[in-house]
C-alpha cells in the first residue's frame, strides 16, 4: 500500500501532514510526497517518520524550491531508505 501526500513539506503544513500520516501510514509500504517544496520543518518530519516507521519507503518529488534542503535530504535521509 502506498500513501500520497499532496501538501508541501513546509512548516505551515507539517502538522496536517503529521496527522494524516499517523492515520494512514501504519501498514503502508511507501509514502509519496507529491509537492516538491521542502524546508527544515519538512526535514524534521521526514526524520520523525523514519524513526516511527523505520521500514517505510519515502519518496519526495524533485524540485527547485528548497533545493539545499532537497540535496541534504537526498544525501542524508533518502540514501538509506
Amino acid at each position: 500500500m502506498r500513501v500520497e501526500i499532496d501538501l508541501p513539506l513546509l512548516l505551515p503544513y507539517v502538522e496536517e501532514i503529521r496527522q494524516r500520516l499517523l492515520d494512514q501510514a501504519a501498514g503502508a509500504e511507501k509514502i509519496i510526497f507529491t509537492k516538491s517544496d521542502l524546508d527544515a520543518a519538512g526535514i524534521q518530519l521526514i526524520v520523525a517518520v523514519r524513526k516511527e516507521f523505520p521500514s517505510l519507503k519515502i519518496e519526495i518529488a524533485p524540485g527547485q524550491s528548497g533545493k539545499i534542503c532537497h540535496l541534504l535530504l537526498l544525501k542524508e535521509v533518502n540514501s538509506d531508505v
Binding site: R18, I43, L45, F53, L71, L72, K75, E76
Partner: peptide, 14 residues
C-alpha cells in the same frame, strides 16, 4: 553538508 537529527522525536511526539 550534514544534519544531525538525533534530537528529533518520533512522528507521534513531534
Amino acid at each position: 553538508f550534514a544534519v544531525d537529527g538525533s534530537r528529533v522525536p518520533v512522528l507521534s511526539r513531534l
